[in-house]
Amino acid sequence: MMQPGLYQLLFISAALFFIGVYGFFTRRNLITMLMSIELILNSVNLNFIAFNKYLWPDKMDGLFFTLFIIAIAAAEAAVAIAIIINLYRSHNSIDVENAEELKY
């Protein structure tokens, strides 16, 4: 078996990204689509960390990008869930097929 290195990490990251893409294509429930987005964001974070670790081990840029992406992901999840709950209150459903109006 191969010694884990940059290529193995990139494989995991790409696989997780496309798992998230698959979920985003097939799911029709807004909360599960949000979960797919979280998987995609995590794969991006893993990518940054892998490049930082194996290509620029003397710098910390990838690490800071990951930190900021985590903060943005938290803000994004909070806003998305506020919108989802508001949608549920007005339409009684969180299926994307039923969410076709932008206002009221």
Partner: peptide, 21 residues
Amino acid sequence: VQIVVYVGGIVVLIIFSIFLT
């Protein structure tokens, strides 16, 4: 940070919104 923000924050938020909807 990953454990605190994602596991402790976002997943709990998602589970709460599942309960609500």
